[in-house]
């Protein structure tokens, strides 16, 4: 049933948020530290385990893939509810600060990505990491 998938997704989310919240409290910050990321790892892990048992019916996974497919529309709704007017009314300081941060951040992507690491994973073909990376992004 689709609700099993939705419940699994929701369960992972709540569990991740709880861990993220606890992490924040331990470190004494008023924020959820990586709760969503932890939930993502948990979902990958749990669905892999269930797959290995061979028991994830299509109807169940449809509860997850529906929300996956709703991602872009939700992001569009998010864009439409951003405080864009405030961003432009902050004056030159905030405008330049934001622009500089984005330029530097984007410029650093190839610097940190650098040369791909030599392949260590024996499951992948012995091709270069570049090739396997592009293959990875083409998947799905």
């Amino acid at each position: 049933m689709a609700i099993y998938g939705v419940a699994l997704l929701a369960g992972c989310m709540m569990f991740g948020l709880i861990i993220g919240d606890l992490l924040g409290q331990v470190l004494g910050i008023e924020a959820n530290l990586g709760g969503v990321g932890i939930a993502m790892l948990l979902l990958i892990f749990v669905t892999n385990v269930i797959h290995q048992w061979g028991k994830l019916p299509d109807s169940t996974s449809s509860g997850i893939t529906f929300w996956n497919a709703m991602y872009i529309p939700i992001v569009v709704a998010m864009a439409a509810s951003q405080n864009v007017a405030a961003a432009f009314s902050g004056g030159l300081v905030s405008l330049l600060a934001g622009v500089l941060a984005v330029v530097l951040g984007l410029a650093l992507v190839p610097v940190i990505a650098g040369k791909p690491e030599p392949e260590q994973d024996c499951q992948d073909e012995p091709a270069t990491a570049v090739a396997s990376n592009t293959a990875g992004s083409r998947r799905g």
Binding site: M13, G16, V36, A39, L41, N68, I74, A80, G136
Partner: peptide, 23 residues
């Protein structure tokens, strides 16, 4: 629809089918 709750739910759902080795 575009608030934090549904956005995070959808973001987590995108992880479905991701290969752990890539991460």
């Amino acid at each position: 629809m575009g608030g934090g709750m549904l956005r995070d739910l959808a973001i987590i759902a995108t992880a479905y089918g991701v290969r752990f080795s890539e991460i």
